[in-house]
Protein backbone atom coordinates (compact mmCIF):
# COMPACT_ATOMS: atom_id res chain seq x y z
CA UNK A 1 0.00 0.00 0.00
CA UNK A 2 2.52 2.51 1.16
CA UNK A 3 4.95 1.36 -1.54
CA UNK A 4 2.43 1.89 -4.28
CA UNK A 5 1.44 5.20 -2.82
CA UNK A 6 4.98 6.50 -2.68
CA UNK A 7 5.86 5.23 -6.15
CA UNK A 8 2.73 6.95 -7.42
CA UNK A 9 3.87 10.21 -5.85
CA UNK A 10 7.29 9.69 -7.35
CA UNK A 11 5.78 9.09 -10.78
CA UNK A 12 3.81 12.31 -10.56
CA UNK A 13 6.82 14.28 -9.43
CA UNK A 14 8.93 12.85 -12.25
CA UNK A 15 6.36 13.83 -14.83
CA UNK A 16 6.14 17.25 -13.23
CA UNK A 17 9.86 17.64 -13.37
CA UNK A 18 9.96 16.72 -17.06
CA UNK A 19 7.38 19.41 -17.76
CA UNK A 20 9.25 21.99 -15.69
CA UNK A 21 12.59 21.27 -17.33
CA UNK A 22 10.99 21.11 -20.76
CA UNK A 23 9.47 24.55 -20.25
CA UNK A 24 12.71 25.95 -18.91
CA UNK A 25 14.59 24.58 -21.90
CA UNK A 26 12.05 26.14 -24.25
CA UNK A 27 12.41 29.52 -22.53
CA UNK A 28 16.13 29.16 -22.67
CA UNK A 29 16.05 28.54 -26.41
CA UNK A 30 13.69 31.45 -26.88
CA UNK A 31 16.12 33.81 -25.17
CA UNK A 32 19.26 32.36 -26.70
CA UNK A 33 17.95 32.37 -30.28
CA UNK A 34 18.64 36.07 -30.95
CA UNK A 35 22.16 35.67 -29.57
CA UNK A 36 22.67 32.65 -31.80
CA UNK A 37 21.45 34.59 -34.84
CA UNK A 38 23.76 37.48 -33.95
CA UNK A 39 26.83 35.34 -33.49
CA UNK A 40 26.26 33.21 -36.57
CA UNK A 41 25.39 36.19 -38.76
CA UNK A 42 28.50 38.03 -37.59
CA UNK A 43 30.61 35.11 -38.76
CA UNK A 44 29.08 34.93 -42.25
CA UNK A 45 30.02 36.82 -45.38
CA UNK A 46 27.50 39.26 -46.91
CA UNK A 47 26.92 36.92 -49.87
CA UNK A 48 26.04 34.07 -47.58
CA UNK A 49 23.65 36.27 -45.59
CA UNK A 50 21.85 37.32 -48.79
CA UNK A 51 21.54 33.78 -50.16
CA UNK A 52 21.10 31.76 -46.96
CA UNK A 53 18.61 31.56 -44.19
CA UNK A 54 18.70 33.46 -40.90
CA UNK A 55 19.08 30.38 -38.70
CA UNK A 56 21.61 28.45 -40.78
CA UNK A 57 25.15 28.00 -39.51
CA UNK A 58 27.90 29.85 -41.40
CA UNK A 59 29.53 27.71 -44.14
CA UNK A 60 32.80 29.64 -44.19
CA UNK A 61 33.56 31.12 -40.79
CA UNK A 62 35.06 34.55 -41.30
CA UNK A 63 36.17 37.10 -38.69
CA UNK A 64 36.26 39.85 -41.29
CA UNK A 65 33.05 41.45 -40.04
CA UNK A 66 34.48 41.57 -36.47
CA UNK A 67 37.67 43.18 -37.72
CA UNK A 68 35.69 45.73 -39.65
CA UNK A 69 33.36 46.50 -36.76
CA UNK A 70 36.33 46.98 -34.42
CA UNK A 71 38.57 49.05 -36.67
CA UNK A 72 37.13 49.91 -40.08
CA UNK A 73 33.40 50.53 -40.10
CA UNK A 74 32.09 54.02 -40.65
CA UNK A 75 30.32 55.86 -37.85
CA UNK A 76 29.16 58.95 -39.62
CA UNK A 77 32.03 60.54 -41.48
CA UNK A 78 34.89 58.73 -39.70
CA UNK A 79 35.66 55.15 -40.71
CA UNK A 80 37.77 53.79 -37.83
CA UNK A 81 35.40 51.20 -36.33
CA UNK A 82 34.28 51.07 -32.71
CA UNK A 83 37.60 50.72 -30.96
CA UNK A 84 38.06 54.39 -30.11
CA UNK A 85 34.54 54.62 -28.75
CA UNK A 86 34.99 51.41 -26.81
CA UNK A 87 37.89 52.96 -24.91
CA UNK A 88 35.91 56.19 -24.54
CA UNK A 89 33.28 54.20 -22.70
CA UNK A 90 35.84 52.43 -20.52
CA UNK A 91 37.39 55.79 -19.68
CA UNK A 92 34.24 57.25 -18.19
CA UNK A 93 32.48 54.09 -17.00
CA UNK A 94 35.34 52.88 -14.80
CA UNK A 95 35.72 56.07 -12.73
CA UNK A 96 31.96 56.61 -12.57
CA UNK A 97 31.35 53.06 -11.27
CA UNK A 98 34.16 53.27 -8.73
CA UNK A 99 33.19 56.70 -7.44
CA UNK A 100 29.50 55.84 -7.07
CA UNK A 101 30.35 52.61 -5.28
CA UNK A 102 32.83 54.16 -2.85
CA UNK A 103 30.73 57.22 -2.09
CA UNK A 104 27.56 55.10 -1.93
CA UNK A 105 29.22 52.77 0.58
CA UNK A 106 30.21 55.74 2.67
CA UNK A 107 26.77 57.32 2.49
CA UNK A 108 25.16 54.03 3.41
CA UNK A 109 27.52 53.61 6.36
CA UNK A 110 26.64 57.03 7.72
CA UNK A 111 22.89 56.71 7.13
CA UNK A 112 22.69 53.24 8.68
CA UNK A 113 25.17 53.44 11.55
CA UNK A 114 25.76 57.06 12.48
CA UNK A 115 22.20 58.31 12.59
CA UNK A 116 21.95 62.03 13.08
CA UNK A 117 19.06 64.44 13.33
CA UNK A 118 17.45 64.43 9.91
CA UNK A 119 19.28 61.37 8.59
CA UNK A 120 16.02 59.63 7.79
CA UNK A 121 14.86 62.69 5.91
CA UNK A 122 18.16 62.75 3.99
CA UNK A 123 17.68 59.13 3.07
CA UNK A 124 14.12 59.66 1.84
CA UNK A 125 15.27 62.67 -0.16
CA UNK A 126 18.01 60.57 -1.73
CA UNK A 127 15.50 57.87 -2.56
CA UNK A 128 13.52 60.31 -4.66
CA UNK A 129 16.61 60.45 -6.86
CA UNK A 130 15.90 56.88 -7.92
CA UNK A 131 12.60 57.91 -9.46
CA UNK A 132 13.72 60.91 -11.50
CA UNK A 133 13.59 60.10 -15.22
CA UNK A 134 16.69 60.82 -17.30
CA UNK A 135 14.91 63.27 -19.57
CA UNK A 136 13.91 65.57 -16.74
CA UNK A 137 17.46 66.44 -15.75
CA UNK A 138 18.91 66.90 -19.25
CA UNK A 139 18.51 70.67 -19.50
CA UNK A 140 19.44 71.62 -15.95
CA UNK A 141 22.39 69.25 -16.14
CA UNK A 142 23.59 70.75 -19.40
CA UNK A 143 23.36 74.16 -17.77
CA UNK A 144 25.29 72.97 -14.71
CA UNK A 145 28.02 71.29 -16.74
CA UNK A 146 28.37 74.48 -18.77
CA UNK A 147 28.74 76.58 -15.61
CA UNK A 148 31.33 74.18 -14.26
CA UNK A 149 33.20 74.38 -17.55
CA UNK A 150 33.15 70.62 -18.10
CA UNK A 151 30.45 70.46 -20.78
CA UNK A 152 31.24 67.95 -23.49
CA UNK A 153 34.14 66.35 -21.56
CA UNK A 154 34.74 62.90 -20.11
CA UNK A 155 34.76 64.31 -16.58
CA UNK A 156 31.42 65.93 -17.30
CA UNK A 157 29.93 62.61 -18.27
CA UNK A 158 31.46 60.99 -15.18
CA UNK A 159 29.86 63.67 -13.01
CA UNK A 160 26.44 63.13 -14.59
CA UNK A 161 26.57 59.41 -13.98
CA UNK A 162 27.93 59.80 -10.45
CA UNK A 163 25.16 62.19 -9.48
CA UNK A 164 22.53 59.99 -11.03
CA UNK A 165 23.94 56.72 -9.67
CA UNK A 166 24.52 57.84 -6.06
CA UNK A 167 20.85 57.52 -5.19
CA UNK A 168 20.94 53.86 -6.15
CA UNK A 169 24.26 52.90 -4.59
CA UNK A 170 23.41 54.73 -1.36
CA UNK A 171 20.16 52.80 -1.21
CA UNK A 172 21.97 49.50 -1.76
CA UNK A 173 24.58 50.08 0.90
CA UNK A 174 22.28 51.66 3.44
CA UNK A 175 19.86 48.75 3.23
CA UNK A 176 22.71 46.29 3.51
CA UNK A 177 24.24 48.03 6.51
CA UNK A 178 21.01 48.25 8.50
CA UNK A 179 21.14 44.45 8.68
CA UNK A 180 24.64 44.59 10.19
CA UNK A 181 24.28 44.57 14.00
CA UNK A 182 24.90 48.02 15.43
CA UNK A 183 26.68 46.47 18.39
CA UNK A 184 29.67 45.94 16.09
CA UNK A 185 30.09 49.69 15.83
CA UNK A 186 29.58 50.12 19.58
CA UNK A 187 32.19 47.46 20.35
CA UNK A 188 34.64 49.10 17.97
CA UNK A 189 34.01 52.50 19.55
CA UNK A 190 34.83 51.11 22.97
CA UNK A 191 37.90 49.42 21.50
CA UNK A 192 38.94 52.93 20.53
CA UNK A 193 38.32 52.93 16.78
CA UNK A 194 37.07 56.10 15.14
CA UNK A 195 34.63 56.80 12.34
CA UNK A 196 36.97 56.02 9.46
CA UNK A 197 38.75 53.09 11.05
CA UNK A 198 35.44 51.40 11.88
CA UNK A 199 34.39 51.77 8.26
CA UNK A 200 37.70 50.55 6.89
CA UNK A 201 38.50 47.71 9.30
CA UNK A 202 35.09 46.44 10.39
CA UNK A 203 32.36 47.42 7.95
CA UNK A 204 34.05 47.37 4.56
CA UNK A 205 35.38 43.81 4.92
CA UNK A 206 31.76 42.68 5.36
CA UNK A 207 30.61 44.44 2.23
CA UNK A 208 31.90 42.27 -0.62
CA UNK A 209 28.46 41.01 -1.77
CA UNK A 210 26.92 44.46 -1.84
CA UNK A 211 30.00 45.98 -3.49
CA UNK A 212 29.54 43.42 -6.26
CA UNK A 213 25.87 44.31 -6.56
CA UNK A 214 26.75 47.96 -6.80
CA UNK A 215 29.47 47.36 -9.40
CA UNK A 216 27.29 45.18 -11.62
CA UNK A 217 24.33 47.48 -11.38
CA UNK A 218 26.27 50.65 -12.01
CA UNK A 219 28.42 49.15 -14.75
CA UNK A 220 25.38 47.87 -16.63
CA UNK A 221 23.51 51.13 -16.24
CA UNK A 222 26.35 53.41 -17.24
CA UNK A 223 27.81 51.27 -20.00
CA UNK A 224 24.41 50.81 -21.61
CA UNK A 225 23.37 54.44 -21.24
CA UNK A 226 22.60 56.13 -24.50
CA UNK A 227 20.74 59.32 -23.65
CA UNK A 228 23.36 61.00 -21.43
CA UNK A 229 26.06 59.86 -23.88
CA UNK A 230 24.36 61.36 -26.89
CA UNK A 231 23.45 64.59 -25.10
CA UNK A 232 26.56 65.33 -23.06
CA UNK A 233 29.29 64.28 -25.48
CA UNK A 234 30.00 64.70 -29.14
CA UNK A 235 32.34 63.71 -31.94
CA UNK A 236 35.17 61.37 -31.03
CA UNK A 237 34.33 61.52 -27.31
CA UNK A 238 31.07 59.66 -27.67
CA UNK A 239 30.48 56.38 -25.83
CA UNK A 240 30.15 53.09 -27.64
CA UNK A 241 26.38 52.98 -27.44
CA UNK A 242 26.11 56.17 -29.45
CA UNK A 243 28.77 54.98 -31.88
CA UNK A 244 26.92 51.71 -32.38
CA UNK A 245 23.80 53.64 -33.27
CA UNK A 246 25.75 55.76 -35.74
CA UNK A 247 27.41 52.71 -37.23
CA UNK A 248 24.13 50.97 -37.87
CA UNK A 249 22.56 54.12 -39.29
CA UNK A 250 25.45 54.96 -41.60
CA UNK A 251 24.76 53.14 -44.85
CA UNK A 252 26.94 53.03 -47.89
CA UNK A 253 24.53 51.34 -50.24
CA UNK A 254 24.26 47.90 -48.67
CA UNK A 255 23.43 47.17 -45.04
CA UNK A 256 26.26 45.08 -43.65
CA UNK A 257 24.32 42.90 -41.24
CA UNK A 258 27.38 40.89 -40.29
CA UNK A 259 29.27 44.03 -39.25
CA UNK A 260 26.25 45.39 -37.39
CA UNK A 261 25.88 42.15 -35.48
CA UNK A 262 29.56 42.00 -34.59
CA UNK A 263 29.47 45.64 -33.46
CA UNK A 264 26.42 45.01 -31.28
CA UNK A 265 28.12 42.04 -29.61
CA UNK A 266 31.28 44.08 -29.01
CA UNK A 267 29.19 46.75 -27.34
CA UNK A 268 27.50 44.18 -25.11
CA UNK A 269 30.54 42.08 -24.19
CA UNK A 270 31.83 44.08 -21.19
CA UNK A 271 28.52 43.88 -19.31
CA UNK A 272 28.37 40.15 -20.01
CA UNK A 273 31.92 39.85 -18.75
CA UNK A 274 31.20 41.75 -15.52
CA UNK A 275 28.14 39.68 -14.86
CA UNK A 276 30.04 36.43 -15.46
CA UNK A 277 32.79 37.47 -13.03
CA UNK A 278 30.69 39.00 -10.28
CA UNK A 279 27.29 37.48 -10.98
CA UNK A 280 27.33 34.89 -8.25
CA UNK A 281 27.48 37.67 -5.68
CA UNK A 282 24.65 39.56 -7.30
CA UNK A 283 21.72 37.41 -6.21
CA UNK A 284 23.38 36.62 -2.91
CA UNK A 285 24.01 40.29 -2.20
CA UNK A 286 20.52 41.40 -3.15
CA UNK A 287 18.71 38.78 -1.09
CA UNK A 288 20.91 37.90 1.86
CA UNK A 289 22.87 40.81 3.21
CA UNK A 290 22.53 39.76 6.82
CA UNK A 291 25.69 39.07 8.73
CA UNK A 292 25.27 36.14 11.05
CA UNK A 293 26.61 36.97 14.50
Amino acid sequence: MTDRGSSGVQGVSRAGRVIVYGLLLLMCLYYLLPLFVMVSTSLKSLDEIRSGNLLSLPKNVSLEAWRKAWSGACTGAICAGLQGFFWNSVRFVAPAVLITTVVGAFNGYVLAMWRFRGSDFMFSALLIGCFIPFQVILLPMAHTLGMLGIGNTTSGLVLVHVVYGLAFTTLFFRNYYVTVPNELVKAAKIDGAGFFRIFWRIILPLSLPIVMVSIIWQFTQIWNDFLFGVVFSSGDRQPITVALNNLVNTSTGVTEYNVNMAAAIIAALPTLFVYAVAGKYFVRGLTAGAVKG
Partner: peptide, 18 residues
Protein backbone atom coordinates in the same frame (compact mmCIF):
# COMPACT_ATOMS: atom_id res chain seq x y z
CA UNK B 1 33.99 55.61 25.14
CA UNK B 2 37.63 54.98 24.28
CA UNK B 3 38.85 57.41 26.95
CA UNK B 4 36.80 55.95 29.80
CA UNK B 5 39.05 52.97 30.47
CA UNK B 6 36.22 50.47 30.17
CA UNK B 7 35.53 47.28 28.24
CA UNK B 8 32.17 45.87 27.33
CA UNK B 9 30.75 42.45 26.52
CA UNK B 10 27.61 42.58 24.39
CA UNK B 11 24.57 40.36 24.30
CA UNK B 12 25.25 39.42 20.67
CA UNK B 13 29.01 39.27 21.45
CA UNK B 14 29.60 41.73 18.58
CA UNK B 15 32.73 39.96 17.41
CA UNK B 16 34.13 41.44 14.22
CA UNK B 17 33.08 38.83 11.62
CA UNK B 18 35.98 39.39 9.24
Amino acid sequence: PKDRDIAMVFQSYALYPS
